[in-house]
Design a protein around this nucleic acid. Sequence first.
DNA 1: CCACATTTGTAGTGCTCACTACATTATGGA
DNA 2: TCCATAATGTAGTGAGCACTACAAATGTGG
Lengths: 199, 199
Amino acid sequence: MAMGRPRAFDADAALDQAMEVFWRHGYEGATIAQLTEAMGINPPSLYAAFGSKEGLLKAALDRYSAKRACWMEEILSAPTAREVAERMLMGTADTQTDPANPPGCLLVQGGLACGTGSENVPFELAARRAETENQLRDRFVRAKAEGDLKQTADPAALARYLSAVNAGMGVMASSGADREALRQVAAVSVKAFEEQSNS
Amino acid sequence: MAMGRPRAFDADAALDQAMEVFWRHGYEGATIAQLTEAMGINPPSLYAAFGSKEGLLKAALDRYSAKRACWMEEILSAPTAREVAERMLMGTADTQTDPANPPGCLLVQGGLACGTGSENVPFELAARRAETENQLRDRFVRAKAEGDLKQTADPAALARYLSAVNAGMGVMASSGADREALRQVAAVSVKAFEEQSNS
DNA sequence: CCACATTTGTAGTGCTCACTACATTATGGA
DNA sequence: TCCATAATGTAGTGAGCACTACAAATGTGG
């Protein structure tokens, strides 16, 4: 049977461009015109490949998550809970102020509150944030079992805390905080972990 | 001379309703139709009183800030820096999950990233957040002078930290975190202050 | 009671939005 | 070579957006 005309653009490269537009303007602030221009394609190609604006966002988020996965692996491989926290927050300070990306975090800026009809966008972003939090919690459960965290420590609470600080840094970065300011926040945050660690 | 027909609605009550719509849907997600319906007025009344959608947001933010002012006064009157932090974050945990309001924080949900033409909305919100941060910083400068904080403590960094955690809690609350979860975050966060406190 | 100033409700305005119809072009298989 | 299939570029589509023209309504000062 026939195979049809082949796609003339690289879907991953196009998704990277779309990701940046969503990152900079949020889901609702990003227009199809801006997206197609950044992706270098026309609307029909976008809809053929991704179905809808929301479908495009999900595809961009999948790619964002995939890119982040190896980064998280390295963080979680740190020997102690304290070091996991430090790598995580210091890494966040760097990436959220990296001029190669828009400032802040896509999972926060993308849209915390949306208009009627886009209610699942905040949901979708929250689910991705929760994924990171769960990874952290599992890591801290292990840290507690290994005696790295005190027996009184609550791994879920610590993961939530780290996740909250991470999101908070995203808010700060989105409003122009520089790398040094974010590193200060990270440094103070990590102190809360020393209280929960053995030695 | 003549004074014209008097306004038939209470501007402050209308602003409270508008505040809630912006809070729940964000600036861009809120439509004039939703706003006018919630405020119980028609578009011409809205534009006569507030000039534009952005003008309405600013007026709502002014009212939000005014309401928050006395709350902040009480927080800042706490005897120690540690207690300032605790009151602040515990209070945030409560208000951001108060069923009387939409979940989260208006200054965060309102819009971190906006579309072309609304660039100053994120700016405006950031300015209001910075106000709180400055109040905290001033309070911590005093705490340091009073010997309540260690001489090695950085008041600006601590204020930034508290501001970041506050924003992070807003992100969590917006995605459905319950009061207990936020209180856990607050409790962990406060531990970072004990490191910086004398005795 | 009357001119005047301002608000109100009705009913739109132009514009931009996400999305698509359609003819064309480019491939693989028979 | 010719058909089936699918992507592309052009040029829109209806819907919903922020905002407003206009006339009726409602108050004040003289």
